[in-house]
């Protein structure tokens, strides 16, 4: 019974779920670089000497972190959809109404959220580099720019990694939200399977276990990375 339910091929749902996992992973993997890049920009703004930029950085992180992720997703998906259709109405009315591609909407929404949290992690990591090392750099005649590139940035990784690891896990889990805007990720594949088999508990439990497995696997990799990043750093 179980074997047929989760088997490959037309009988079972194994291949559908696997395809869903693939979408989930692609979504998370595509979001990571975009979110990270945006996170750097926001962190730079928050650490800027210009009050206006600082205020903007602060405003972005505060608003984004204060809003439910699902609300952000709807705003992005529906907002981009409305915008796109308005543009199409204007320039190419013959096409008619279209949907904004959900994968892209998912990446954008998740990246916007990720960036807000990543900016906070990065800001903390920058400030965690011991003041003494900066002074030591300045003392041997480095410019502020050199101190940034040669002393602060190389150590950023080490201080940011634990926080970033957490954000990656959250990202993996947040991808599940995208199922509500019609993207065929793991969550939605499960829903389809439930609709046909009428075995909601079995399938949602399976989905949970798959997510759990993905998270545990990620944690394993993250501890390795942390150990590597902390090479040569003795803990008191």
């Amino acid at each position: 019974m179980m074997e047929t339910l989760f088997s490959y091929g037309p009988q079972g749902w194994g291949d559908e779920l696997l395809a869903g996992v693939w979408v989930t992973l692609r979504l998370a993997a595509a979001t990571l670089p975009v979110g990270l890049l945006l996170g750097f920009v926001v962190a730079a703004a928050s650490l800027s000497r210009r009050p206006v930029l600082r205020a903007m950085g602060w405003g972005y992180t505060t608003v984004m972190r204060g809003m439910p992720e699902i609300l952000t997703l709807f705003i992005v998906y529906n907002g981009l959809g409305l915008g796109l259709n308005r543009l199409l109405d204007h320039f190419a009315p013959q096409i008619g109404a279209v949907d904004f591609p959900p994968f892209a909407a998912g990446v954008i929404a998740l990246a916007l959220v990720f960036a807000a949290f990543a900016a906070e992690v990065l800001r903390g990591a920058f400030q965690a580099v011991p003041e003494g090392q900066v002074l030591a750099g300045l003392a041997i005649g480095m410019t502020g720019r050199q101190v940034f590139w040669r002393i602060k940035l190389p150590q950023l990784w080490r201080f940011a990694l634990p926080g970033m690891g957490n954000l990656w896990l959250n990202l993996l889990k947040d991808t599940a939200l995208v199922s509500v805007i019609a993207l065929d990720d793991l969550m939605r594949a499960t829903k389809v399977a439930v609709g046909v088999t009428k075995q909601p508990f079995t399938f949602y439990l399976a989905a949970c276990l798959i997510y759990w497995g993905l998270c545990l696997g990620s944690e394993l990799v993250l501890t390795r990375l942390e150990a590597r990043a902390n090479r040569g750093v003795r803990r008191a």
């Binding site: 896990l169 969550m187 499960t190 909601p200 949602y204 439990l205 989905a207 949970c208 998270c215």
Partner: peptide, 17 residues
């Protein structure tokens, strides 16, 4: 390690089983 949405579906829809 699991999305809250999945937990919610597991309880709300899963209980139907």
């Amino acid at each position: 390690g699991t999305p809250l949405l999945a937990q919610l579906f597991l309880v709300f829809y899963g209980s139907g089983q």
